[in-house]
Design a binder for these strands. Structure first.
Lengths: 133, 133
DNA sequence: TTGCGTGCAAAGGTTTTGCATGGCA
DNA sequence: TGCCATGCAAAACCTTTGCACGCAA
């Protein structure tokens, strides 16, 4: 599990107090005001991701990976819906999704890893905005 | 639409003859045997992705982006299952997934974008390998 | 002939790694 | 005390860009 250090606690504290935002490593250091080396942040985040405390998004838009705090420890059992427009992430607990995961495993021979999967789309609010404006 | 050059044709030819594999830029050059500069491949792939001929995956596993040929234009209607171990992508057409997408839209107010979504997990072969080795 | 495509090399940015030092248990 | 974590700098890596030349139309 590793030691609990000032740096790791600081990183996790800041991220957990902004559960709706995600950060690049640079942003995390700048916005949190912590004096931590980049390498340390990368190493800490890698650990947190492994432990399921933080989720990593890779977007593909060239800006480097982004990291977001994961609330609760139940994220293994549900999916994350990420809005391509506003960037918010919705944690969705849903029996239909559970059934789909089971189906994919039984019928398609593929064990789904919910922790590493993010479903992309457009959230209701952004959809409404698009239609009105 | 751009010129049709030997390089672009070669890249697309090779990728379309291996529709089940995805490649990093390096792999594409090495395995195809084409003598093409990396920059050219990056530029060509960016164009192909824009045109919908090729799909780009960002995985997050540090190995750089991977590209895969897109057969037909039907990828809007199904999901891609990507194996975190071997990296292969499986195109999965499945009514259960379709139902889930509908459910998420109707009940959770979130319009799923299948083109931009990839489901991660472990494929059957890799699961078997893990158990035996 | 015109202009896009190509290739090389350099630049840019992100992430990882080596090593000595500092801190947690 | 022993080991892990940290920080700095260097390295590794992937991707983009500038520029001169070549090729498609």
């Amino acid at each position: 599990m590793g030691y609990s250090t000032k740096q790791r606690a600081g990183i996790l504290d800041y991220m957990s107090s902004h559960p709706d935002s995600c950060f690049t490593v640079r942003e995390l250091i700048a916005e949190s005001g912590l004096s931590v080396g980049e390498a340390t942040v990368y190493r800490a985040l890698a650990r947190f991701v492994e432990e399921g405390k933080v989720k990593k998004y890779v977007s593909g838009a060239g800006a480097g990976a982004m990291y977001q705090y994961v609330e609760g420890e139940s994220c293994e059992s549900h999916f994350h819906l990420r809005c391509l427009s506003c960037g918010r992430v919705f944690h969705t607990e849903c029996h239909v999704i559970g059934e789909m995961v089971e189906h994919i495993e039984k019928e398609h021979g593929f064990r789904v890893d919910a922790v590493h999967t993010t479903i992309y789309g457009i959230c209701g609010e952004c959809e409404a905005k698009k239609e009105n404006g």
